[in-house]
Design a protein around this nucleic acid. Structure first.
Lengths: 331, 331
DNA sequence: AATACTCATGCAAACGCTCACGTTACCGTT
DNA sequence: AACGGTAACGTGAGCGTTTGCATGAGTATT
């Protein structure tokens, strides 16, 4: 399959490659007649310019990298969709990398994206420690982090206000006369987890409640994690009647554990999740949860990235306040 | 940010660029001493070869295209994950394109991938008619279609055996003494839908049942579609007691419609879905459904693509028989 | 009629690699 | 001593674009 090149077009049209290049990019002055002639040849020959040659010459690939822990995790597809839509509108495409929660693969992915000379990257919840992440990011023209902080000269940031979310959940539970609250805080390494602890603690203390360390439990961010953590919790502290969870999956796991322990949700214990994934509304009981539009999160991340690529590093942090969706699990 | 090039490395190491290239690619003969010296310089300078230059010279991008209707649709993330894992193992990366069910965007995406000179593409359920799709695919070095047929010289194919699935569902329902069966067949344009009609019809006829045209209803492939189709159905044919659905979302919509009409699932009517998306097991009642491993579907698609890229067009079609997962909605 | 411009176009050098050859230096053979 | 062979490297061209600068043909100005 010998591909048609710009030279073929030029020869056929009896002009120089330069002229063809100009009509391709609408640059410089060109007479209407030659422009039309060239365009005709282009479509007759079915010529498509090579972006790889173009990239080499122009030093820009019009490609972005999207790093996610796992696209199969229900949190990320919507983000990816939002990101791709905005990228598409601006003529960029997206390389998708799953880090599968593996630091080594995350590092390799970042390097791969550098090798491919992407024009910028959006990294969702990177797991690498700062001293590894920052140097890697610095080698990219621009980057935006989702749910993770970095110096604004290095990367933009966009995240959910998890502290606010936890606070909101606590107030909601307190208003329902629930006093014995616990937090399933997610993994220790999670930035969002720490935020939730902050919000949870300060909301309780501000309302005159004391918070014991045992009421905050770490867990893996999935159903299994929620199940086990809740089980442990119910075996030690039977008086708990309100539970704030790291995310919806954790909440679902917790519900299952409660079922098994014979505790009714929300009768004996109210449960609040986070994310509002699809099945939050379809589970039994339907999950009260904190939500933000993940589509917009992804879309905003890319918008911000494009800004930064354009040299504008003004808006360096966007924080989105989640909305509390009240359903059966915590009325 | 002036990037380090292979020439910089060569100069610093006192060798030619060719030699550096050789150690980079483990090609040709090189003495251990110079290899080591070069490698040292490379890591000291933090040199990373430009894949875009490499691609231009070697005529291979080590990049694949993944076309999906919508990554936010729960059907596709798992496929994407499987695809990316296999690609990653073989040193390829993936460009993700959402066609958003839009033919024009699908066409543009295919062209974009051509412009980027990807080494191959996996296209999930393309919507373009054959006379548009085929020429577009022909311009790619290799391609694999998911849930869509094409001449094996053009593209490999991998799909679920939907006819078998529908047949399996029918037999399951018949075994439960359900005789009045209907099919919510999905969109008219869907290849899978037609397969289901075939399987549904032939399974019934083979067991001596007649199938009237009204018992097969088309619908959009989502909850709204299932809801409306089921509602229409229940208003006209009250004697139906078994429902085979295009997918799980349709089934969930149908369940909702049944609820509203006061029909108990599975008491009055049994419902079978397809896909086994996450919420199938968590809905109430839990959904009996047909499943295949989407992860493997994606993984196999890329494996097949790599085969084809290697010139091997032998295995041109893989058909996966779904497994019936029996849950509450159709015991 | 000469000058100064503008407009349209071409030339050649980059961009950072790979690939097909060519070239050394060194060794063993006869 | 002349030759051939081979391991270890270098040369130069090419991949398909873009970019800076130069060129030439008209047109308007004086």
């Amino acid at each position: 399959m010998a591909r048609i090149t710009i030279a073929d077009v030029a020869r056929e049209a009896g002009v120089s490659t330069m002229t063809v290049s100009r009509v391709l990019n609408n640059k410089g002055e060109i007479s209407d007649s030659t422009r039309e002639k060239v365009q005709q040849i282009i479509s007759r020959l079915n010529y498509r310019p090579s972006m790889v040659a173009r990239s080499l010459a122009s030093n820009s690939t019009r490609t972005l990298g999207l790093l996610v822990p796992d696209i199969a995790n229900p949190f990320f597809p919507e983000i990816a969709r939002g990101a791709e839509d905005v990228a598409w509108e601006h003529g960029f495409s997206l390389i998708l990398c799953n880090t599968v929660e593996d630091q080594e693969r995350e590092k390799r992915s970042l390097q791969l994206l550098e090798d491919k000379r992407v024009d910028g990257i959006v990294a969702c919840s990177p797991r690498l420690p700062d001293d590894e992440l920052i140097p890697l990011l610095e080698r990219h023209p621009a980057s935006v982090l989702v749910n993770r902080t970095a110096p604004s000269s290095i990367a933009g940031m966009i995240r959910r206000d998890d502290a606010y979310g936890a606070m909101r959940a606590v107030h909601h539970l307190l208003a329902d006369e629930r006093q014995a609250l616990c937090l399933l805080a997610g993994p220790t390494y999670s930035h969002g987890g720490k935020q939730r602890i902050r919000g949870f603690t300060s909301a309780l203390e501000a309302t005159g409640h004391s918070v014991e360390p045992e009421s905050i439990i770490t867990c893996s961010p999935d159903e299994a994690g929620g199940y086990e953590a809740a089980k442990r919790l119910l075996e030690t502290r039977l008086q708990v009647n309100g539970l704030v969870c790291y995310n919806d999956l954790v909440a679902l796991g917790a519900i299952q554990a409660c079922d098994e322990k014979g505790m009714r949700v929300p009768g004996d214990i109210a449960i609040v999740g986070c994310d509002d994934i699809r099945l939050a509304s379809l589970a039994t009981p339907a999950l009260t949860t904190l939500r933000i539009s993940l589509y917009e999160l992804g879309a905003n991340a890319v918008t911000m990235l494009l800004e930064r690529m354009g040299g504008n590093r003004e808006t360096d942090a966007v924080v989105i306040k989640p909305e509390l969706i009240v359903r059966a699990s915590a009325p």
